[in-house]
Design a protein around this nucleic acid. Structure first.
Length: 447
RNA sequence: CGGGGCGUGGCGCAGCUUGGUAGCGCGACGGUUUUGGGUACCGUAGGUCGUAGGUUCGAAUCCUAUCGCCCCGACCA
């Protein structure tokens, strides 16, 4: 993309309503525009990152064998009356009447609807296990939306639902989700720690929340410092292998890690040596639940087992806060000049800064660099505006592309361009060809 | 919902106490400057002062109502 033809409304000054750094930076970088309390338009740059995150979630869910579908944002109230949650959910549910005065609601989650789909089409244990998911907009009429996309009322969430014949099968689905979530977050450049949590209105017995440590997090967390050394990394895993998945769960959840909801000071002190005890703040970016037959029983989601008996299926639901992740990533990765995108989610792979727009040699070098990067399958942003170098650097730093190639007449005289890491600030002079190869190598794992 | 604060060009703000017909910085636009980390100068455009009603010769300013936004708390991906 050429910046001169893009739509990137960056702000020099910080809008007064933004209190936390991710919100400020998203506004300043022209990623979002607030339309009402907790409701945002996604401008091109923000939309691009949102799509990259969605893509990672899709890939990792499907790698785990989970099947995508799409359910609507509006749901009939009757479905929720069946589960008893139409009344129970409270003011947070946005209720709507259509022209015929029928009761609808803007879905805050989809357990009822997915259960309805399941019960109308699945009747045999032979069709299990089954995990269906979608990535769809949700609406929860929060009392107090805040912090930009971190606590919006409308938000994009991946929610997945597993249907299994037995408790054991459902626990495997639970473990499988934990593994797939660990992989997803790591691909986004995040460390998200699974912590024992409370189930809230979804209900259920087993549940873990995934938290990204950040000063501005809304949850207080307590953990064993050893847990931050754990990485899923590049290991191979067979998602159908029950033992392998369980081993990962045990590895990542055996040490003490809890949110303030479930924190037990006595257990914390008993289990964790003092020098490893940490308390911090965290941003919740996902949660997995096992809730058994809580919905399948009242809603009649049953299958016939191998003995010919009709039994309710064991279910769980699993969510990733897709739109919230943008905020979480920025909270975890920024500096005083702006955002620092991890390679896995960056809106553009590299920025090209032409220091002297209109200089024949510089223009030509930038054009060929731009074309060559695209030929490698990369997505560069070429700042071809008639701006001073400082303004271009400031824009690039603000929007946070992890790599920048700086091209100017001085360097070109020596046959070099400059490749700069946004994260470290370190620059290296090298030929354009070498810079292209370097970037192709850096991004090879992410394409 | 309880407590606090704020609505004035795209953004950040001043003006309001003591009513007299709107101003500054940034940004935008047109020039000059050719500048290697938000350059400087000249010029231009852009505002029913959130909305409605009231008081007044006259309201951004005073009064009433209303809408919206932000912050702290209880709730949540």
């Amino acid at each position: 993309m050429r910046l001169s033809r893009y739509f990137l409304p960056v702000l020099k000054e910080t809008p007064s309503e933004a209190q936390i750094v991710s919100h400020r930076l998203m506004l300043r970088a022209g990623m979002i525009r607030q339309q009402a309390a907790g409701i945002y338009s996604w401008l091109p740059l923000g939309f691009k990152v949102l799509r990259r995150i969605e893509q990672i979630v899709h890939e990792e869910q499907q790698r785990a064998g989970h099947i995508p579908l799409l359910m609507p944002t509006l749901q009939p109230a009757d479905l929720w009356r069946e589960s008893g949650r139409y009344e129970a959910y409270g003011e947070e549910m946005l209720r709507i009447k259509d022209r015929h005065k029928r009761d609808l609601l803007y879905g805050p989650t989809n357990e009822e609807m997915i259960t309805d789909i399941f019960r109308s089409h699945v009747s045999s244990y032979k069709d299990l296990p089954l995990t269906l998911y979608h990535i769809q907009w949700k609406f929860r009429d929060e009392i107090r939306p805040r912090f930009g996309v971190m606590r919006g009322r409308e938000f994009l969430m991946k929610d997945g639902y597993n249907f299994d014949l037995t408790y054991e099968d459902a626990m495997h689905a639970y473990n499988r989700h934990l593994v797939s979530y660990l992989r997803s977050y790591e691909r986004m450049g995040l460390q998200a720690i699974p912590m024992r949590a409370e189930s809230g209105p979804i209900g259920g017995d087993d549940t873990h929340e995934f938290l990204v440590l950040a000063e501005t997090g809304e949850s207080e967390v307590f953990y064993d410092s050893e847990i931050t050394d754990l990485r899923f990394g590049e290991r191979e895993i067979d998602y159908d292998n029950v033992d392998q998945c369980r081993a990962v769960l045990e590895e990542f959840t055996s040490r003490y890690a809890r949110t303030d909801d479930t924190h037990d000071a006595a257990a914390f002190e008993a289990q964790v040596p003092e020098e490893r005890r940490r308390s911090a703040r965290g941003i919740e970016v996902g949660q997995i639940f096992y809730f058994g037959t809580k919905y399948s029983e009242p809603m009649g989601a049953t299958v016939v087992n191998d003995k010919g008996e009709r039994v309710p299926v064991h279910m769980g639901s699993h969510g990733i806060g897709v739109s919230r992740l943008l905020g979480a990533i920025i909270e975890a990765s920024h500096d005083e000049n702006g955002i620092i995108w991890p390679e896995g989610v960056t809106p553009f792979h590299a920025g090209i800064v032409n220091l002297k727009q209109g200089d024949a040699a510089a223009d030509a070098a930038c054009e060929s660099l731009y074309a060559a990067l695209k030929a490698k399958g990369l997505d560069p942003l070429y700042d071809d505006r008639e701006e001073r170098a400082g303004a271009k650097f400031a824009t690039m730093d603000l929007i946070g592309l992890p790599w920048r190639i700086t091209v100017g007449p001085r360097g070109l005289k020596n046959g070099v361009v400059e490749l700069t890491s946004r994260r470290t600030g370190e620059s290296e002079e090298l030929t354009a060809e070498a810079a292209i190869d370097r970037l192709a190598q850096i991004y090879a794992p992410h394409l």
